[in-house]
Design a protein around this nucleic acid. Structure first.
Lengths: 330, 330
DNA sequence: CTGAAAGCGCTTACAG
DNA sequence: CTGAAAGCGCTTACAG
């Protein structure tokens, strides 16, 4: 390559790396040769020399035995946003799906494969979270979406705000007995925050908070179904539901339909996550959606240790996605 | 590292690479030192020397302006399956989402970043397909999911079979006027194949085939809605629909509901792709699902140029996912 | 502004 | 079975 352009290897490198200490004439010649020869810089070699990788690892934690098509679609949206944000910052993304303990691998930094790790996915996989927690405590650059551990670097939705506006919306529509379907003691820290937002809105309206716990060991749809079944069989009175996650809400809606409870007439529902499947239920599911673009950008900025990616700013704003599972405000 | 274990660099390398020409005693010592020092082989350097990358690039072609949450969930399932299959073969996966012409990048092989490229995603993005077609014609290892070009290396669902069994199911349930919603001349080659399966089943039942074309420039849900709107407004008689893709079917079901046409009583529906959102429509959407595990494995084997990954075997088997949008067989 | 040389961290003939 | 040396394809001080 250097030979073809009649310059040294150093000059080729500088020309292609846009170094300023190169005549435009020389650069042009080098570039023309590169095109003629179909030459491209070997990224591996360049990065080895530079001591960086230009790559970020994104690991999606799954439940054991969960196929790709069973993964909560919310995480796929997040994955896409992270890849886009990384690409915008000039980083490639090494993606892997990890479920069982033997699949766990996060030593990307140690093996020179990535400059940092972004962990997203189900918090129910204890082994995985312990593994990545240790990695982080070991001083590696790893950032989590919605970590169960406060000491780690995390980025989360503004869950409190989401719970607040979801509940306010239900109250404004005139529903009286609004129950929250979720969990306060699960590793899903985000669930507790959503509950607290719900609680605040209820308190402000002078109404008691009421929580129906879901069994987070079960799959999400079963969680929703079982929760509704339990409430109905107990004879609970409710006409509004703020549900901690859309996938759970989908199961809840199925159960309500089978039991003949009409949404939104007899029961209003607001979910959380804004997944697309909620567009096609009947009625479509009203939900709280985080700003995915901000989520991706924040995760990437945080793992890269950017200035400005301070703790206080790691909250992703949310908005109400008005669809059809809540009747109009009174 | 070598110093700590009291051996040469070569020995360290051989011990860690499980070379047979190493005493177990030496290997044990090296491994212990590695653990003590937290040493790991630098993958980049190893691969540079070995002339391979141990990595596969997976590019998801999107529509311009499409956010991650708008991507057809089918492709996410496929993406997950590909990553899992690659991982099973000892390969990492470099994932990117590409929509606009300036985002197009597939020179992973040339730049030493991957040993091959797997292209999946919407066929409606002409520029992208041309780009990857050129890359493939240039001799690069690139394999496509459902390519519009016959000369490329592709892996596809057994679309003909899928169309056949979907239509047979509708016929068996006693629906008389079964229409296909799809396209025969779109770049989606798979759509034509699905139509042909439909056609064969109709012919075998002695019934005429009837095609309602969708406008593949629009987004998928609009395609479904508009197709139904057109049929109803024209006064077409139909009581069965085999729809080329679930995302289109979801839109069609929304439109049917709004127009008061009951599924499956007045109209039976079978979609294609088996996306999860179809579980929560009412009724749930009966669909044809490819075996994702086989799809991922075949894509990976093909791009790696494995023996046995012959053309004839690049068809992914499909099965009927019985849900609720077709009434029981008579 | 450009070139010759060193070196990033490995693996692999080549000797012994 | 193990070591010394070369080399994978780059970038970057160091000279000029």
């Amino acid at each position: 390559m250097a030979e073809h352009a009649g310059v040294s290897q150093s000059t080729v490198s500088r020309a292609l790396a846009n170094s300023t200490s190169i005549t435009e004439a020389t650069r042009a010649r080098v570039i023309k040769s590169a095109e003629a020869l179909g030459y491209m810089v070997d990224t591996r070699a360049a990065q080895l020399r530079q001591g960086r990788t230009g790559t970020l690892a994104v690991v999606v934690i799954c439940r054991a035995g969960e196929a790709a098509s069973d993964i909560n679609p919310f995480y796929f949206s997040l994955l896409g946003s992270v890849c886009a944000a990384a690409s915008g910052m000039g980083y490639q993304t090494l993606v892997s799906f990890q479920a069982t303990p033997d699949q766990l691998f996060g030593k990307y930094e140690e093996s020179g494969q990535a400059d940092g790790v972004i962990v997203i996915g189900t918090t129910a996989n204890d082994a995985a979270w312990q593994y990545y927690r240790d990695l982080s405590l070991d001083g590696r650059a790893v950032v989590f979406w919605g970590s169960p551990f406060d000491e780690l670097e995390w980025v989360r939705s503004d869950n409190y705000e989401g719970g607040l506006i979801a509940t306010q919306r239900l109250i404004a529509a005139g529903y009286r007995n609004i129950v929250h379907l979720g969990a306060v003691d699960s590793p899903q820290r985000q669930f507790r925050e959503r509950y607290e937002g719900y609680q605040a809105a209820m308190a402000a309206a002078g109404r008691p908070a009421s929580l129906q716990e879901v069994d987070y060991e079960a799959d999400r749809e079963t969680q929703g179904r079982s929760a509704i079944a339990a409430m109905v069989e107990r004879g609970d009175i409710f006409d509004g539901l703020f549900i901690a996650c859309d996938s759970i809400a989908l199961g809840a809606m199925d159960e309500l339909r089978e039991r003949g409870i009409a949404v939104p007439q007899q029961c209003g529902i607001v979910g959380f996550d804004g997944i697309r499947a909620g567009i096609h239920t009947s009625p479509p599911l009203t939900s709280i959606e985080p700003d995915f673009e901000v989520a991706g950008a924040l995760l990437v900025a945080t793992v890269l240790g950017e200035e400005g990616a301070q703790m206080a700013e790691r909250r992703v704003p949310v908005r109400l996605l008005e669809r059809g599972s809540v009747r109009s405000a009174e």
